[in-house]
């Protein structure tokens, strides 16, 4: 049978139950609809068996062997992630981020040599995420049980990000650990006249000393 014929068929009436199962699984992925799922499944079907198996095995192995770092919740195959177990990192700095995506973004700046703490989201009760769903307890433990010189809050400047920062501030203030947050202001290379008023106003309030460079 050629795939073209299936394309023109109603997706809800596929010729095989097994095919239907595979399509359903694919369409659970973010950004994948029923049509795209069917295209991917048909593609897999036309691949040599060993390719399809290695695809499936990669998923199984990843799911079984990838763990979260016990210290910072970063993705790892060991007990500790490569950042936490590194001996060139400054262990007295903790940068708090929402998810692994932000960790990767900060790592790619190569400006930061401290450790991380991944929260696993940001507070938004209406979306069902309260403070207890985030890894704040473990952050507090780290601050209490280690010598920490600074906790850097690297959260989004959205309402939810600010709420989360404020909650962490409340939790950590009694431990007297210095807290800082990322600077908010004009992006590098931006024309001043096109900067929105809120950002420009904030930049002016939080202006910094200039020493000629």
């Amino acid at each position: 049978m050629s795939p073209v014929i299936i394309y023109s068929m109603d997706i809800s009436q596929l010729p095989s139950r097994l095919l239907e199962n595979a399509v359903n699984e694919f369409s659970k992925l973010p950004g994948i609809g029923k049509k795209t799922a069917l295209r991917l499944v048909l593609h897999m079907l036309n691949q040599p068996t060993e390719d399809a198996l290695s695809f499936a095995n990669a998923l199984i192995q990843m799911k079984e062997e990838v763990k979260l770092c016990v210290k910072c919740n970063n993705i790892t195959e060991e007990e500790l992630c490569s950042i936490c177990s590194s001996n060139v990192r400054d262990e007295s700095l903790i940068c708090v981020v929402e998810s692994i995506k932000e960790l990767i973004a900060i790592e790619s700046t190569s400006q930061y040599k401290g450790l991380y703490h991944i929260l696993g989201g940001r507070i938004s009760p209406m979306d069902g995420i309260g403070p207890r769903d985030l890894n704040v307890d473990s952050l507090e433990d780290r601050v209490v049980n280690n010598v920490v010189a600074e906790v850097i809050l690297a959260l989004s400047t959205t309402m939810e990000g600010e709420t989360t920062s404020f909650y962490i501030f409340r939790r950590l203030e009694k431990h007297k650990v210095p807290l800082s947050t990322l600077a908010r202001g004009i992006s590098i290379g931006d024309e001043l006249e096109y900067t929105d008023e809120i950002t420009l106003g904030r930049s002016l309030l939080n202006r910094m000393p200039y020493h000629g460079k």
């Binding site: 507070i123 938004s124 009760p125 209406m126 309260g130 403070p131 709420t163 404020f166 909650y167 409340r170």
Partner: peptide
């Protein structure tokens, strides 16, 4: 968000004052 928390607290009979405070 605050109104949602107030409704949740009443529904689940739990205390979420620390979040409401934020």
């Amino acid at each position: 968000q605050r109104n949602y928390l107030l409704k949740e607290a009443a529904k689940t009979k739990s205390n979420n004052d620390d979040v409401i405070e934020i």
